[in-house]
Nucleic acid binder design. Structure first.
Lengths: 283, 283
DNA sequence: CGAATAGTTGAGGACTATCAAAAGTGGTGG
DNA sequence: CCACCACTTTTGATAGTCCTCAACTATTCG
């Protein structure tokens, strides 16, 4: 995989987060790094360690996972080419999770001290990176919701939707279809299910016409249908993040009762919905 | 609640994240704000909005939640006094979740533009805040694991352990006991369970001697016992984060097979554990 | 005291896990 | 080109955790 193409893609990604200038871009382009390869399943960062490099993914896929004491594995996020995996490794003193290669991967390992220099000397860049980690946090929140409050079909459908959009953005697929980066066991570890149940649910979704499958290729005949069946709403990916925050007037949610202004203010609440905690009843 | 006491507590919290100097502390102390109150259950930030203030919690508890299309509610995190809730509201253009008061709360609302000024003019402070959001992200990862791969008893026990440590740190409880900030329905929404099952599980845990309850007060007769029964390991809270990252030699995990160095490097893998993805078998 | 919120209990059912094994896929070497 | 091996996907049968519905009790607060 071409390093500078991927670097440029990453720069464009950061520019969607915050405005950069020429010196910021130049600093990114001149980052020292060593090129590394890892085979599928090998560990790139281990829980408990303090890595001395942060890694820009060049080709292939990686994921982050945590284990329970009795061996249950939960995948908590995944990364595609152009992602800076493990930026937090430069700022936190101890890794709280493992990063593992999903496929054979190429990546550029950048010494932590150069990342720290970058942060110190390029505030705009630091802000773009910070925002990037905030978007990651938003994705974690959605995953908590996904495994916590959705059934198997919705969980898997939601994951397939996220794959579609993120692969599309990286030029590796479309919302009509893509080569799924994960096998069924890994999908199970993303969704908190067993591989057997993932298999059955995928088959059921195919029977319903939500998806079609050709080996590992996922085809989505009706994007809107899959989205709605999965409760998928892409807001949490913050795809249209545009640098500076803007004034408050795009409330484009389909769901929910956006009653206009926030009720940040003092005032005791009396409306029924407020008293019930605004949890809408079952549909 | 005393504003300046809470502010000082927040400053100390940031100083655990990154070193600050006098001008940083002075800048925090001179932040302009408006004092606000919100009653239990009222919304402080609404999904889809772009708040123009960020909020420092002074007294009471708040939580973040997301809803599924059919009304399921998932709490994704909670906040105690001294926390800057919704720092990301200053950097992301659209809120992806709701922030709601758990109890009656007092908070200080700081206009976003002053937060942005702070970030621009106080790089050390910006880094401390960034690290704080990275710790939040780490907590989300643990919550994904919690709802994805643990049973009801472990999920609830894990949450009770997290309460204990965080309340302890805030001076609002100890690992021997504390006033639980949440009722059983809210615990259910944190753990992806129903309130009925939470009730039964709490009773079972009490029968086992893992906890004792006096109304909303949780007593923990044997901290180690509860921790182990819940698979709780506080690494993910990054309590001992010490500013600058340190060199790599504290591998103090009890669990897991830390085989020393990372295998970041090239090399095809051949060992059995690597091929199996290093997922330990059931205990 | 009465209304509202929170906690408790029971019975039955649904979703998902577990155990076991067969069939399909892909790569390797003779 | 085929046999062989590892891995992945698929299928069946059974069990269990957790949910749903419904009602009852305890606690809080005006």
């Amino acid at each position: 995989m071409n390093f500078s193409d991927t670097l440029e893609r990453m720069i464009r990604k950061f520019e969607r987060r915050a405005p950069l200038d020429d010196s910021d871009r130049a600093a990114l382009r001149s980052l020292p790094f060593t090129r590394r390869t890892a085979s599928a399943r090998s560990f790139i960062v281990r829980e408990g360690s303090s890595p001395d490099v942060s890694c820009l993914l060049l080709s292939g896929y990686t994921f982050r996972q945590k284990l329970t004491g009795d061996g249950g594995r939960q995948i908590v996020s995944f990364h595609l080419p152009g992602d800076f995996m493990d930026l937090e490794g430069s700022l936190l003193s101890c890794a709280d999770h493992n990063i593992q290669a999903l496929t054979r991967v190429d990546y550029a390992a950048v010494p932590v001290r150069h990342i720290l220099d970058l942060i110190d000397n390029h505030p705009r860049l630091a802000r773009a990176m910070w925002i990037d980690t905030l978007v990651d946090a938003s994705i974690y929140r959605e995953w908590v919701l996904n495994v916590g409050r959705r059934n198997a079909r919705e969980r898997i459908g939601h994951l397939l939707c996220e794959f579609a959009l993120r692969l599309d953005l990286a030029g590796l697929g479309t919302t009509h279809g893509y080569q799924c980066p994960m096998n069924q066991e890994q999908i199970a570890d993303c969704t908190g299910l067993t591989p057997i149940h993932v298999n059955r649910t995928l088959k059921a979704m195919e029977a319903e016409g939500l998806i079609r499958r050709h080996l590992r290729f996922i085809e989505i005949p009706d994007w809107k249908h899959l989205r709605e069946a999965s409760g998928f709403d892409d807001t949490y990916l913050h795809l249209r993040q545009v640098g500076e925050p803007v004034v408050n007037h795009h409330v484009s949610r389909t769901r929910g009762s956006q009653t206009g202004a926030n009720n940040n203010s003092v005032s005791a609440q009396t409306s029924a919905s407020a008293r019930s905690g605004e949890r809408p009843g079952p549909a």
